[in-house]
Computed example of a mutant assay.
Amino acid sequence: MSTTPAKPARIISLPLRLLKAVLAGLLALLILFEEWGWEPLQRALAWVGRIPGLRWLERHIAALPPYAALALFLVPTLMLLPVKLLALWTISRGKLVLGTLVILSAKVLGTAIVARLFTLTQPALMQLPWFARAFMRWTVWKNALLARVRASWLWRLGRVIKRHVQRRWQRLVS
């Protein structure tokens, strides 16, 4: 009885599929955070934007031409990168909790600012044909990924647990 050796493509294919699944899972978590945080954080910054000086600033941001809006839209990412690098340096120095808190704070603050800026600049950004196409592709891909995540047993279990905790909380505070 002779055995045929495993094909090299199959041997390489399994780790690549596992890596792809892990990366897709991490990306799904990131997208879910963005989904959960985007609207509430944007509304919070809109509320802050009612301050007279900030209202003036928001009106000017909303009136920007497309490429100026794009440049402004990229600013929070560039500004928070050094903060995140500093947080990683802090973690490397043994201050795991502090570094993690800085990264999480930067993520929340960055999401809030980007969400508000996108709301203000979206009409201008959509005037750029390549941006509009990329945004539509991103939206389709993101919605398909979210549909897969929401159809998973883990997501459904989480929803059941969340409803259970909410009911118990309501009973406690009532």
Rank of each mutant, 00 (worst) to 15 (best):
M1R: 09
S2V: 10
P5H: 09
A6W: 05
A9L: 02
I11L: 15
L18M: 05
L18D: 10
L19W: 13
A21H: 04
L29E: 04
I31M: 15
F33C: 00
W36Q: 06
G37M: 15
E39G: 08
L41S: 08
L45Y: 13
A46C: 03
R50S: 01
P52C: 12
R55F: 02
W56V: 15
A63I: 14
L64Y: 02
P66D: 12
A68M: 10
A68R: 11
L70P: 05
L74V: 15
V75F: 08
V83T: 14
L86Q: 01
T90K: 00
T90G: 00
I91M: 14
V102G: 03
K107D: 14
K107S: 07
A112G: 06
A112I: 01
A115M: 07
F118V: 11
L120G: 02
L125N: 00
L125A: 05
Q127M: 06
Q127Y: 09
L128Y: 10
W130A: 15
W130E: 11
R133P: 01
R137W: 05
W138H: 10
W138P: 03
T139W: 07
V149Y: 10
A151T: 01
W153E: 06
W169T: 03
Q170A: 13
R171H: 08
V173M: 00
V173S: 00
